[in-house]
Computed example of a mutant assay.
Amino acid sequence: MLASLKYICTSCSSLTDSQVEIKEEYCLHSRHQGSSCNRCTEVCPQGAIEKGKFIAEKCDGCGLCATICPAGAIQQTWLLKLLPQLIRHVRETQACAFICRKNPKVAGAFRIPCLLGCSEALLLLLASQGAKRILLGAESCVECPRGEMCWDILAARVSHIYEILHDYGAKCQFVFNRDKYKGETKAGRQGEVSSISRRRFLTDIRRGSVNLLGHMVADMGRGFRQEVKKTSLETEKYLPYEHKLLSAAMNNLGARTNQHPKIQGYFGRVEVSQSCHGCGACANACPTGAMTLQEKAGRRILVHAPGKCTGCGLCQEICMQDSIGLTRSVSWQAVSEEKQYEVANRPARQMETALGSMENRLSFLLGCGLKKN
């Protein structure tokens, strides 16, 4: 009886204190029912997301889904609350420590639901703010059923971050509270990430963080949060929170090192072939506003902004002409300078000649025939 009561109380607690927030209106499936995006379902270790539906009682708030959602439909509530304090902490101590919520509290360390919630965007942002050392500590991972998976994912993230920091000429040491760990990059470089003891690391943090207790920063500058105007899905555009952190991190690194390397994986660059007739369906569907349609002097012009592109691929899936190609290699200069590129320029009359074929294509997709006058 007591065991059953404890289970009910635990379940109710997880429902009322959820560590992730789902905004279904931002999901790619809400914008286009034919979207093949299944990222959150594939990575969820608890099976809490099935066919785009969130099952709250199964979620334990690890946040892995939020770190990979390209549309920003899933957010970690703890990150929204703690980010100002994290950045203030890093600026004053040049260090930061994260521990799993299952661990006992440690002075100077931030307890979060799961280390899986430490996305590359967050870790890069802290490094760009001046962090010289970042501790990822989780003694309880040894007993956690997904402990090994957690460490494999973190190791891959840290390895990628080392590549980016190397390209920028910046340095940040990542400390794992396990044995020795070496992050090896694609180019074969290795970074020693556990050269100091965990006790000494936390002692250094405590010395610098006394003045931070109870301190919260109300304003972290431009770009971290943005109110979204509630309009129809056709006009509503929303830049994911994680993507804003990435942009801020890259801008910080570029300003500090005066470098703008081309790095794979975070932003997208669209190319449009001659088969495009300028219908603008891709611009309507784009969840972030990276793709826009302009009409000037009888021309329909498609413009793409890599800094707003998350590489979700929805524009490719919705294009009836299969005209769109997507690459994941973008110069950070294009991101930092908010550059826009004209990717298609078609005469408006081309739409009129293409209308018949579009009607035929739509009727085929809807499974019906065209009514002849």
Rank of each mutant, 00 (worst) to 15 (best):
I318N: 07
A305S: 12
A170H: 12
I74W: 09
P104D: 11
F364E: 09
K186L: 05
A56N: 10
L126Y: 06
L202D: 04
C312M: 05
L83R: 01
A187I: 05
C279E: 10
C118A: 10
A73H: 13
A290Y: 04
T41R: 05
I68L: 09
C37K: 09
M220Q: 08
N38T: 15
C44R: 15
K182G: 06
K51D: 09
R361Q: 10
R189K: 12
C100N: 15
H160Q: 08
L82T: 12
G34R: 15
R91N: 15
D60Y: 11
G34D: 13
L122N: 01
R39Y: 12
I205W: 11
G188T: 04
H304P: 00
R178L: 00
S357D: 13
C312Q: 04
A131R: 04
C65E: 04
A155D: 11
L362G: 09
N345Y: 04
S159Q: 11
T292V: 09
F364W: 14
P347C: 00
C279S: 11
L82I: 09
L79N: 01
R91K: 15
V335F: 02
K171A: 04
P84R: 03
I153G: 07
Y238S: 08
G183H: 10
Q294H: 14
A354T: 07
C319I: 09
L366W: 14
C144K: 07
D152W: 00
I49R: 07
S35H: 09
A305R: 08
G169R: 02
S13F: 11
L233P: 05
E352F: 06
Q340L: 02
A138D: 15
G188D: 07
C62M: 06
H89A: 01
G223A: 05
A73C: 12
L64V: 13
P84F: 06
C141F: 08
S195P: 10
Q33R: 15
L233C: 07
A334Y: 07
A156S: 13
E234K: 07
L5Y: 08
G356C: 02
A248I: 15
L5T: 14
I161F: 04
C96R: 06
E57P: 07
R88A: 14
V330H: 01
C309A: 07
I318C: 04
Y266S: 06
N284H: 03
G208Y: 10
V175R: 03
E236D: 03
I87H: 03
Y238M: 02
K244L: 14
L136I: 11
C9F: 10
S329Q: 08
R146F: 10
N252M: 03
L213C: 05
R299L: 00
A107Y: 10
A71H: 11
N373H: 11
C141D: 14
L136H: 11
D179V: 05
C144Y: 15
E352H: 13
L202M: 10
V335S: 02
M358L: 13
C150K: 08
L80I: 12
L79S: 04
P104V: 11
W332K: 01
L365R: 15
A285I: 12
R146A: 01
H29P: 02
E57L: 06
L239M: 09
K132S: 07
G369R: 12
R189Y: 13
H166I: 01
K58F: 06
Q190T: 14
G34K: 15
L154W: 10
P240Y: 03
K237N: 09
